[in-house]
Write a protein that binds this DNA or RNA. Structure first.
Length: 354
DNA sequence: GCGGATCAC
DNA sequence: TATGGTGATCCGC
């Protein structure tokens, strides 16, 4: 910001580096420098406030069904498993299986484009009623661990298992053991013959990770579908976690401030809930690509954005978000999702700078 | 409050 | 042939 701007007539060919050095050498204590300090103090006030509210005492799980609609169709039509397949129509696809993804066929892609990428692609029309039934089955399981769980869509939910973990300490082994019915046990191609007669049952422990494994086991037991999970002290990290080891995996973020900051530092802002295409571009223009960059550029951010937007960005940079779940029925807002009107907010600013 | 922009599913 | 439909927030007016 303090650097010399040479986009003015008569300023070409100057030794920019040398001039900038002189400006910098004389700038400490100057108005420019003080302004910068002031803005960083403003930012630090917000950051301190957020840090003060950091709560590592709760355990949130985000459960995300793997390629949900496509997996349901594969389950009911196994011949589709080996073929590139997507669910939706020629105008829009809802999701695709992993074979199709190798061709670049993704959710939210028009079917006719997908067909050009992969002419053999099988497009299966939506069976919404079926997905709703499966969703109900998974939600019955969720309710056993958190009666107030928050369903985000048919294939995603947040659970606060803090209370369950307390109660669970008293569970005997039987209450932590689950097994498949013989009729449901499916032989996977990679299983050896001995796996067929194997007792398909499992006992789970007492840790947050054990609970997530148990949830995923029970979902598969009941629906024959796989899910991924993120376990963390808040919704932002839980949501990130369910994506990191997908499919059929899970990630645990320990309730440890230092470890969270270390993870978040190099994590791309675009993958955080609430940061979409436009915000990504806007931040990218400021050379902000990783969550840690949001912290380093905090002085610039308070200059450019509203307090609400800054708080949103700073919470991301600290790995802080809400850990309070609104029950699905009465949900009005999702506290981790924030948008801001970048264009109009900045039209104003640029107008002043002219 | 309303409409526009943004975002997620 | 052809690029969703809905619900939520924040912003400027």
């Amino acid at each position: 910001r303090m650097a010399l701007n040479d986009n003015k007539a008569g300023m070409q060919g100057l030794d920019k580096d040398k001039i900038n050095q002189i400006i910098m050498d004389n700038t400490v204590g100057s108005r420019f420098y003080m302004n910068e300090q002031k803005r960083e103090m403003q930012a630090d006030d917000l950051l301190t406030e957020i840090e003060k509210q950091r709560d590592l005492t709760r355990t949130i799980i985000h459960i995300d069904m793997d390629a949900f609609y496509a997996s349901v169709e594969e389950r009911d039509r196994p011949e589709l498993k080996t073929k590139p397949m997507a669910v939706g129509g020629m105008d829009m696809l809802s999701t695709s299986n992993y074979v199709a993804r190798k061709y670049g066929v993704r959710a939210a892609m028009p079917g006719f484009i997908a067909k050009k990428l992969c002419p053999e692609l099988v497009i299966v029309p939506l069976n919404f009623d079926k997905y709703k039934q499966v969703s109900k089955q998974t939600q019955e399981i969720f309710a056993e661990y958190d009666a107030n769980f928050s369903g985000m869509s048919l294939d995603e939910a947040f659970l606060d298992i803090t209370d369950h973990l307390q109660k669970r300490i008293l569970y005997d082994e039987e209450e932590r053991t689950f097994h498949y019915h013989h009729s449901l046990a499916v032989k996977q191609p990679q299983d050896s013959d001995s796996d067929l007669s194997r007792n398909v049952s499992e006992t789970f422990g007492f840790s947050p990770e054990d609970v997530a494994n148990e949830l995923r086991f029970r979902i598969h037991q009941k629906t024959l579908l796989t899910a991924s999970a993120g376990i963390a002290p808040n919704t932002m990290l839980a949501k990130i976690g369910s994506d990191l080891n997908k499919p059929n995996g899970q990630t645990y973020f320990k309730p440890n401030r230092e470890e969270i900051l270390k993870f978040v530092k190099d994590f791309p802002v675009r993958k955080v809930n609430g940061v979409g295409k436009v915000t990504e571009q806007l931040l990218s223009a400021l050379d902000i690509k990783k969550c840690g960059d949001l912290y380093h550029r905090r002085g610039d951010l308070v200059l450019l954005f509203s307090e609400i937007s800054c708080s949103f960005f700073f919470r991301i940079s600290l790995g802080c978000s809400s850990n309070v779940l609104e029950s699905s029925g009465e949900r009005k807002s999702i506290s981790t999702e924030r948008t801001f009107n970048a264009i109009s907010e900045h039209k104003e600013l640029f107008a002043k700078l002219e």
